[in-house]
Simulated scan of single mutants.
Amino acid sequence: MFKFCVLFVIISIFVKLEANPENDDIYYSQSQVILRDNGIRYSSSYPSQCFEILKEFAENASNFTLCTILHARPITLCEKCIKDYVKFRDKYKELLVAVVNGTSCKSIFLSQDRLNAVQEYHDNILSVWDKGNCNDCYNWTLGIPSLKSTTIDFYRMSNDTKDCISKYNDPDNSEVCNKCMQIYEELDEFYKTLSSDSIGVDSVCMDIVDSMNATRSTWSKTLNCCNLRRTPEVVFLSCAGIISFLPILYYITVRYCGPIRDLPNVLKQSRFKQTILRGLSIESRSD
């Protein structure tokens, strides 16, 4: 009973404190102090044009981030988000070089504290674009992006391959592998030329890499078209094994089945043995 009374008193005091309008005045006055402090230190001394540039940069960063997330799977962000990327890039450059009434906007928002929020957000957002090698999809003449001829050729060949697979991939038609083999191999060989290494993950635009991986997966796993390549390989390996075994078979045949087995023993004796026998015969005659 005593514990219940104590708990009731504590709850009553807490309710009174929450309902007391004086507490709201205290919180409000504290908030006003913070706002006035921020106003004294920042708003009154910085040009409004810099804040407008920062606001536009934030909007561009938001749009670019949204676009990259929406086109993350399948990966088409390099193609679909190029306009948002250019706006994001250009507005950041403007923020770096803008000077209003002798005040640099860069000096206001960048590298002024340990958090360095503007720079951190810029670098983190840009890292997705750079990690995907998206700039490799384009030519950047005067900073304006245009698709490379190799990018256009790849997508043309990729679309031809997909159209061929769609055309012949019927339940009653098993000719899709034979019909589309040449087109697929041309696409695969062209993809290998896009990079100096055999993989290309570290240098080829990620849109192209993901598209090629999807096509290879469909070709090998879904359609099982790689089985057609295994038959010639089995024949080749079998022939190579037989040819390698022929010398061994020849020596075994000569050793155990050759005509030397039918010769008299005297003909099979070595020259060394014949020399010894001749020497012994000469000595016996001299005696």
Rank of each mutant, 00 (worst) to 15 (best):
1 M>V: 08
2 F>E: 15
9 V>S: 14
9 V>W: 10
9 V>P: 04
10 I>K: 10
10 I>T: 15
12 S>Q: 11
18 E>R: 12
23 N>Y: 13
25 D>Y: 11
30 Q>Y: 09
34 I>L: 14
36 R>F: 12
37 D>R: 15
38 N>M: 14
38 N>L: 15
43 S>D: 14
47 P>T: 02
49 Q>N: 08
52 E>N: 06
53 I>K: 02
54 L>M: 04
59 E>M: 04
60 N>H: 07
61 A>N: 08
62 S>Y: 07
62 S>T: 06
65 T>E: 08
67 C>Y: 10
69 I>A: 06
74 P>F: 13
76 T>I: 09
77 L>K: 08
82 I>R: 03
83 K>D: 14
86 V>D: 01
87 K>I: 00
89 R>Q: 08
98 A>N: 04
100 V>W: 01
101 N>V: 09
102 G>C: 14
104 S>G: 03
108 I>S: 00
118 V>K: 02
121 Y>S: 04
121 Y>D: 02
122 H>V: 02
123 D>T: 05
124 N>S: 07
125 I>V: 14
127 S>T: 05
129 W>V: 03
133 N>T: 07
134 C>N: 01
142 L>K: 13
145 P>R: 03
146 S>Y: 02
149 S>P: 00
150 T>R: 09
156 R>W: 03
156 R>S: 12
159 N>V: 10
160 D>G: 00
160 D>H: 14
161 T>M: 10
163 D>V: 05
164 C>T: 12
168 Y>F: 13
170 D>M: 05
173 N>E: 11
173 N>W: 01
173 N>Y: 02
175 E>N: 11
177 C>E: 07
177 C>L: 04
179 K>V: 01
180 C>L: 06
181 M>R: 11
184 Y>V: 02
185 E>H: 10
185 E>Q: 11
185 E>T: 15
187 L>E: 06
188 D>Y: 11
189 E>H: 05
189 E>G: 07
189 E>W: 04
191 Y>R: 12
192 K>F: 05
192 K>V: 04
194 L>R: 03
195 S>L: 05
202 D>S: 12
204 V>M: 08
206 M>R: 06
210 D>A: 10
210 D>C: 00
211 S>A: 11
212 M>G: 04
212 M>I: 03
217 S>N: 09
218 T>W: 03
219 W>G: 00
220 S>Y: 08
227 N>M: 04
227 N>K: 13
229 R>D: 10
230 R>V: 14
232 P>M: 10
233 E>T: 07
234 V>P: 01
235 V>R: 06
236 F>I: 07
237 L>Q: 09
240 A>V: 06
242 I>W: 08
249 L>T: 06
249 L>S: 15
251 Y>F: 15
251 Y>M: 15
255 R>I: 01
256 Y>N: 07
258 G>V: 13
258 G>L: 12
259 P>R: 08
259 P>Y: 09
260 I>H: 14
261 R>P: 00
264 P>T: 05
266 V>H: 01
268 K>I: 05
272 F>D: 09
272 F>G: 13
276 I>T: 02
277 L>V: 11
279 G>F: 12
285 R>M: 10
287 D>A: 10
